[in-house]
Design a protein around this nucleic acid. Structure first.
Lengths: 216, 216
DNA sequence: CAATATTTCAAACGTATGATTAAAACAAAC
DNA sequence: GTTTGTTTTAATCATACGTTTGAAATATTG
């Protein structure tokens, strides 16, 4: 196995595919476009990855894997801290959102739309996505129940869904946000984006807290 | 122009296309699949609609147009009511969310994923989507500024973005919500869904209201 | 340097696609 | 009942796709 050459071609393909998938969608992007953009031969995709679909999976995995790893690390650290009774909500949300929003830095808007598009795409890529999300999903769901012990189960599921939607939309349509706000909103400002989505979703998750018989 | 026959074929195509687009995505759905599902001849699509892309536009328009009309009607009614100073937030949000969530009733989960997929799709369909959303977008943005006069402009844009994300995700991935909650959450319950998303997003939009110099 | 494994390349494969055509079937109007 | 306009049909078009191939090039190893 050659490191320099293979990695070079492989990486060039991954980069080009990521850019094109994100920019115009998985289905309409052809291998010919990808290899042309990457400056490699057409057959290289089927040589290094076995098929177009596995390439798409590799593109996804390269970015999402480290994000989920970071999420779990932050959750571990949070749970290791001594907390009286309920887990603190805001740090929990931050552990979920921040690693994802970090993708918006450095990489000039190449990856984010991709992960937003995955929801829509059918087949093996979608399956891989849910596989990669399963551990994070379970761990954070359980933690959220501990953070909001007085919230009825069905309300919590709904609200978690809304919170995930806020993130998904920021990943998928973040470019639109910057356009519509005339540059007022900057996706690259990870601190600002994280603070704002945590503020928004924590308030949403806590809505009506006073009315219930909660701890308050 | 024949009503019965043309409308019949046209509608059959629209129904089949909607179902397939929503189920598996625009790009991967072929005209042959659509016409087979609709039980009409292949050439019928290019006869009644001019191209596949215009068909996709028609599919979108058929559902989104009435939704936006209803939204504006509800906003008109709301603005007509006497309101001292600021517009009431919850009814404003309800006017935006409810007409969209109404799509989830009756139609057995056929349309919702489609509108979620539109974000991802490139080209003329996406353009048409934004055209159809422009009036709603402007009117509701302005109304929201009136409803939250003390919220800084950039915070408002961010939070509006999150709120739209909550809806978009519910439209796009609502099926997932029902699966993950073991039937605990029912998309067809428009009242419940509307109440919950209004509660969540209004709390999110109002986050930290006490800390600012607002009316409170 | 020779032998071997890995990677690149141009060319071609079969298949499926969106679109078009001209004739047939059908309905409407007179 | 014939004419006129509309809709449906089957067949075909050129094109683009993902994948495969076998030979050339390149790197790795002994």
């Amino acid at each position: 196995m050659n490191q320099a050459t293979e990695s070079d071609t492989k990486t060039k393909i991954l980069d080009a595919a990521e850019r094109l998938f994100a920019g115009q969608g998985l289905g309409v992007t052809s291998l010919r476009q990808i290899t042309a953009e990457a400056g490699v031969n057409l057959a290289a995709v089927n040589y290094h990855f076995r098929s177009k679909e596995e390439l798409a999976g590799a593109v996804l995995e390269r970015r999402l894997r480290p994000v989920n790893q970071k999420r779990l690390e932050m959750l571990d650290a949070l749970e290791a801290q001594p907390h009286k009774g309920a887990l603190p909500l805001e740090p929990l949300l931050e552990a979920f959102f921040r690693p994802a929003l970090e993708l918006n830095r450095d990489r000039e808007h190449s990856f984010q739309p991709l992960i937003g598009r995955i929801y829509g795409e059918p087949g093996a890529v979608r399956k891989l996505f849910f596989e990669m999300m399963s551990e994070v999903s379970v761990r954070f769901s359980n933690a959220l129940v501990q953070a909001l012990p007085d919230l009825p189960r069905d309300e919590l599921v709904w609200r978690l869904h809304f919170a995930v939607g806020a993130l998904a939309h920021t990943m998928a349509a973040g470019e639109m946000l910057e356009k519509l706000s005339d540059g007022l909103c900057d996706l690259g400002d990870v601190e600002g984006a994280t603070r704002r989505i945590v503020e928004f979703t924590s308030a949403g998750l806590r809505a009506g807290e006073g009315k219930r018989g909660g701890v308050r």
